[in-house]
Design a protein around this nucleic acid. Sequence first.
DNA 1: TGCGATGATTGGATCGTTCAAGTTGTGTGA
DNA 2: TCACACAACTTGAACGATCCAATCATCGCA
Lengths: 324, 324
Amino acid sequence: MADNVTIITVARRAQVSRQTVSNVLNTPHLVREETRERVRRAIEELGYRANQAARQVRTGRSQTLAVRIEPTRDGINSLVLDRFLHGLTVAAASVGYRVMLYAAADDDAEVATYADLLAAYDLDAFVLTDTHHGDIRTSWLAERGVPFVTFGRPWGAPESHPWVDVDGAAGTAAATRRLLDIGHERIGFLGWPPGNAVGDDRRAGWASTVGPEFADLSRFTADDVAEGEAAARDLLSIPDAPTALVCASDSLAAGAFAATRGTGVAVIGFDDTPVAGVLGLTSVAQPLTEAAARCMDLLTGVLDGGITPEPVLLQPTLVIRESA
Amino acid sequence: MADNVTIITVARRAQVSRQTVSNVLNTPHLVREETRERVRRAIEELGYRANQAARQVRTGRSQTLAVRIEPTRDGINSLVLDRFLHGLTVAAASVGYRVMLYAAADDDAEVATYADLLAAYDLDAFVLTDTHHGDIRTSWLAERGVPFVTFGRPWGAPESHPWVDVDGAAGTAAATRRLLDIGHERIGFLGWPPGNAVGDDRRAGWASTVGPEFADLSRFTADDVAEGEAAARDLLSIPDAPTALVCASDSLAAGAFAATRGTGVAVIGFDDTPVAGVLGLTSVAQPLTEAAARCMDLLTGVLDGGITPEPVLLQPTLVIRESA
DNA sequence: TGCGATGATTGGATCGTTCAAGTTGTGTGA
DNA sequence: TCACACAACTTGAACGATCCAATCATCGCA
């Protein structure tokens, strides 16, 4: 469509120079009000939009964030990323940024693409998800001074960077309290094998709420429905078996749900995925839109202010359904 | 990190002019082999990556596709987009394109942002998902000559554009045949209210396989688990009730599954979402990675060759689980 | 030997924007 | 009256690439 509307077209129409138009857009206080209005009108009438690529060539800033899109990992939980991405796109757009996707098979491959992405696209920042123990990505970026935010705490890492996370322990604690409130006294926990930071955190929320005397009411297994079911059966077959289960994920909860059908044992899952809705599972919900917005807030702090903002820890909420 | 490696740095290192370096990258056949190798070595040694923004300013092409990211709509099915996005990002990267996200509340809002996106970012193409009857988006883009591909047929639209879709009717037909094969004779269908093109298509696959005499073995309802359960109960309470159900979505299938528990009635869902995995539902799976790759193929046809490629209709597969 | 064709390489102009350094005009204070 | 500060605006250069036309060799052929 011969998009010939450049800053010069606008300048001619408003009878000013290129630079004045540029000033109206970027540093309006330098321009007299009357002139500013005239330029604004010309922009409006011509439907002018600043060419981001040209701006980027000159300034070296792309107004672009990069986010890795994961292949579906374990099925159920990838839905979390989907909602986070949507929130991030909206939040970014509202402050003039855009979101670009990249794919990588694993962390090593991801680090290998950083250099390419940065050199070719002048990315302003990265948003990392799923941080974990010994994450090589954060140190690579930090060493090179590349701005980034993580959705997930810097588990065990000494160096600190801006991050947003949801308090998983608080989530499982709330789930446990809910079960206590509705009369359960022996509450078990179904989680992932120790060593996974997120999983350990979720277990800790349960453990601190029930107290140390119930430590043996927990089982660990891979994040899989069938394994969850088996572990739940095992846990329910012991003497003084629990009458309620808190689970580290909706996958495990779905398994537990199958194992407890008809027994009246209560089950609570984590992440409030569609599976929870379908099964009628009470589940801990992460405020993903809010998390995305906060990531963007932190990033604007880093990018515009040059400050290192304080991390943000958000509280999850419990979505109550029939299962507990 | 003063990323000062530009085309000139490379040129100096290889003792050639800027233009020769550019030629090595874009039109290598114009450069003598010996020179080409020398330049390639210099590029390698310096870790040079062409600056996309600068290229874009000159050529007007951004090597960027835009895809809308949806808020979670009805819960279960949004997972489809997630996997499609991943496939598209990978396919795009392999041919030098990147994927940018944008959000829009509805089709009108989406059309309103097109002009902005195009002018500001020189997008090369759009990938649209969820096409439907009377889609205003395709006509807007087609009128202005903006390249695009849809994942979804141009339902009922006269004008034709490149598209990729999965044969929903073939999917429900395969599901129906599967049920016939394992001995069922009265097979019902649970779908969405007529008027939704995708839904009508899925119904047609069932209808043509069972034959017209079974037309009253179908029920329509919103895409919701509870409504699906109610509709299934209704269908199963009639005289000569069906012994198996084909459903237009996993949401409906999840409802049907709840309604039929313990009755031995078989159920097949659609989209092979995690819910199907959890419930053990047999479900029709769309080849999303393949679909994304084909979208990219069509786009390169449009963008590089200027041709209007033939549409692609992919076949879904049936993932067999315990429910049928 | 001279000339045109072809292949390989080069230098200037350009894309649309912002930065940096100018130019103009007006008002203030000594 | 003159110097000076300051606000408002303009002009030239630059960002890093590609397009285009020009140059320089090389070679075959009359």
